[in-house]
Amino acid sequence: MGHQRLGKLPALRLLPEIIRYLVTCGAPTAALVDQVTAVGKDALKLAVKDPVFIEALWLLVRIPQAAAAEGFQKEMRELGLPSATSASLMDILIAYDSALERVQRQSHSNATDLGEMARCAGLSAFGEAIRDRLPSLWPPTAEDVRASVSALKGTEQFAAMAHRFYSNFVERVIHYYVDRNLHNMVGIDRVAKSVNDLRIFNDAIRRHCDEAALIMRAFAKDWLGKNHYKDGKQITKDDVRRFSTYSVEKIRLELDQRKGAS
């Protein structure tokens, strides 16, 4: 978990270099780097107040634990996911999506685009983590799916999923900003000149987010290990909110470091 022990996290490219993919002709990039970093940090700070964000992360902790429990169906119902007890990966994702939709529609006061981004980030992270553990030589049975979901209750598996979740979330936040505010820079003599440039830029942003969120692999592993396995706690939404508060602070620090000159 220790941020301090890591030294410099892996970084294929820092943000200024990524932005230079977009801006040619010697145009200044520092302001843009600051803006992109600031929007990522602001989003993380606001996200912990968004009930959909917290629900998305809490379900990533609780669904695997429920899947591993003897009373699987009862546990799932208690989480508000009755349809997740049926067979396939898609059924599980639909149930997860529906649960988040319900929270989203109930939230009259705090609903923002961050909740929707967390929903998509959670779906991607959960789907990928389950799929990685499904058999590839035969069509997965309901038991295979349940085994794959329950395997995610382990600290290392949760850590990898949390890493994906935060990476996906920050990536969506950055595109939310870049795609909206840089549109005047798309075109000849401006920013991305071509479909290829856009793809390279998008790939670079994805890697930037993936690396900035790497810290979550260590942090999430130790957090779950300490709270659930060592102390035997049933993880609550408040626990997840506290975890998220620390998590976003760590990623905010990481984003700050990555805006340094490359």
Binding site: L9, K193, D197, I200, R207, L214, A218
Partner: peptide, 23 residues
């Protein structure tokens, strides 16, 4: 079809090594 930048891809195991380092 135009290409403003030519990107040198990182080593193929770059991502897995970075994750392994943290793990």
């Amino acid at each position: 079809f135009s290409r403003g930048h030519v990107d040198a891809a990182p080593a193929s195991d770059y991502d897995s090594q970075a994750k392994a380092f943290i793990d």
